[in-house]
Each structure stands twice: as C-alpha cells, then as structure tokens.
C-alpha cells in the first residue's frame, strides 16, 4: 500500500471533521470574540444521541439499511445539539456580554463540565461502541484503502461547508451575520437584531458540531463523555491556525491540521526508527500552531490587523 496516499486520505477525513467543528468555534469567535469552550461537548452530545437513537431503533427491531438508520439518528441529534447551543448562549453567555472578557470564558468552562457530567450520568463512564451498521468493505485507490464511510465523511463535510459559505455570502441572514461580526453596535443601529443573529450563529455551529460528532464516532467506532474535550481543542487549534473568525480559514486550518497530524505521526516514527512514534501525534497540532502564530500572528488566512493608534 502507498503509505503517503494512505496517510493523506486519513488526514483528509480527520481534517474535514476538524474543519466542521472549527467552523463552530470560528463563527462564534467572529461575532462575539468568545472562545466557546463548550462547543466540544456539543459535538460529544451529538455523537451520543445518535448512537442512542440507532440502538433504540435496532432494539425495536426496525429493519432499515445502515446508512438510513444513521441518517435518522443524525436527524434526532441535530435538533438536540442546536437546542443546547441556543440554550448555552442564552444562559451562560448572553448575560455576560458587557462583563470582563474572562467571565464568559469561565462560564463556558462551567458549562463544559456540566455537560460532561450530565453525559456521564446518562451514558455512563465507559466507551460507547458505535453500532456496526455500516458497510466495512474497502476500496483500493492507487494503493491506498478508503471506506465508504470515509468517502461519505469527506463529501458530506464539503457539502456542509459549501452550504455554510452560501448562507453567509448570499443570504440575508449571512449578511446580517457578517455585519454583526464587523461591528455589532453599528449593525444594531442598522436594524439588525443582534441577539437573534448570535443565537442563529450558535444554532448553526451546533448543528455542524452534531454532524461532526457523529462522524468522529463512526470513524473511530466509539464515543465517550470526555471525547469532546480533545477534539474541541484540536478544532479550536485549527480555527486559530487558519485565522480565527475567518470561515475559509477554519476549513483550511482543519484540513491542514488533519493532514499534518496524519503525515507527521506516520512518517516521524519511520524516520526516527520508532523512537518518536505516533505517541507524539498530538504534539504536531500544537507545534505547528505555535510556529504558524510566531510567523503569522493572525493565522494563515486572518486579516493582518493593521497597526492602529
């Protein structure tokens, strides 16, 4: 098998998932300069709800093809995540709009802890296996293996990103979102309902997060109450890498990060004779991030913040 191509494919799959999650971070940050620490937990809840739904349906003896089952589960999970995103913003962030910048960060961490614990109460502290409902056959392309699921992840992620771009660039809602991120005060004066826009941002980001959560669970065959933390961290890193607040940047950052991680952990082990093996996989994300920020403090696609008096 062609190792390079294989790692590239794996990286692309993981990267598209990072990108979807990163979009949630970057949209919220773009509009309210807030790191939504709880976004990773929304991703986790999305995965958990989907698994539960599929298991319920299977338990009831419902006869449906795997992908359809998955879709049904996903359609149940998306509204749950959307509602959560909406509620979190209303309860934990909105009252603190005028507070010192760190206050909402602390409530975000609080929400994150609460959601993790609630998830543990509901789903237990063990790994939940992803039901084996999906075909596992493997296509060989140019010496590398790719599953239907991986193809579906990449395609679906691209479709969703495309949809988001359309939404932001072409619709009235998107225009209002862009206006709010430029200057909320002025947007308000121009008749934009800023609270509504912020809610919508959370809702859309959470929906994308739920989808990403299901992708993670399906790709790794499991889900866990703490899974949101690391994946959220990586996705946020991706958003910063691309230039936080920038939609295109989040996509670029996510995919790049996935590929770098995948290639890095694949090759570093070989190059160092197994000494610096895949244990160091998680380091790549951060090393790359630090290097990029040192040389391009606003991220790859971030606007250069003009020196201002």
């Amino acid at each position: 098998m062609d190792i390079f191509l294989q790692q590239l494919i794996n990286g692309l799959v993981v990267g598209s998932i990072y990108a979807l999650i990163a979009l949630g971070y970057t949209m919220v940050y773009g509009i309210m300069q807030l790191i939504n620490f709880a976004h990773g937990e929304i991703v986790m809840i999305g995965a958990m709800v989907t698994i539960t739904c599929i298991n319920l349906l299977l338990g009831m003896g419902v006869q449906m093809p795997g992908p359809v089952l998955l879709l049904v589960g996903l359609l149940m999970a998306i509204p749950v995540s959307m509602f959560l995103g909406f509620a979190i913003e209303k309860v934990a962030y909105q009252p603190l709009r005028k507070a010192p910048r760190l206050a909402p960060l602390i409530t975000a961490i609080g929400v994150s802890i609460v959601l993790q614990q609630v998830a543990m109460l509901i789903w237990g502290r063990n790994y939940r296996p992803f039901p084996s409902i999906l075909p596992t056959e493997v296509h060989i392309i140019g010496g590398a293996a790719i599953t239907d699921l991986q193809i579906a992840i990449i395609v679906l992620a691209l479709l969703l990103m495309g949809g988001l771009f359309y939404l932001i660039e072409k619709t009235k809602l998107g225009r209002a979102m862009r206006a709010t991120s430029q200057n909320p005060e002025v947007a308000k004066l121009m008749g934009v309902n800023v609270n509504h826009i912020i809610s919508m941002t959370f809702i859309i980001g959470s929906a994308l997060g739920a989808v990403a959560g299901v992708m993670v669970a399906a790709n790794y065959d499991q889900a866990h109450a703490y899974m949101g933390f690391m994946i959220g961290l990586k996705a946020f890193t991706a958003a910063v890498l691309g230039g936080i607040g920038n939609i295109g940047g989040a996509v670029l950052g996510g995919i790049l990060l996935g590929i770098i991680e995948s290639l890095g952990s694949g090759y570093l082990g070989d190059l160092t004779g197994g000494v610096l093996g895949s244990h160091y996989k998680d380091i790549f994300a951060f090393v790359v991030l630090i290097i990029v920020l040192v040389f391009r403090p606003s991220g790859l696609m971030g606007e250069r913040v003009a020196e201002r008096a």
Partner: peptide, 16 residues
C-alpha cells in the same frame, strides 16, 4: 459525577 456537576453549576452561577 454529581459533585463535579454541582461544581460546574456553581462556577456558572457565581460568574453570572
């Protein structure tokens, strides 16, 4: 779980 849950809620409430 419950203890961490209460703890998380306390953090949120204090900050609010």
């Amino acid at each position: 779980n419950l203890r961490m849950l209460v703890f998380g809620l306390a953090m949120i409430i204090i900050m609010l």
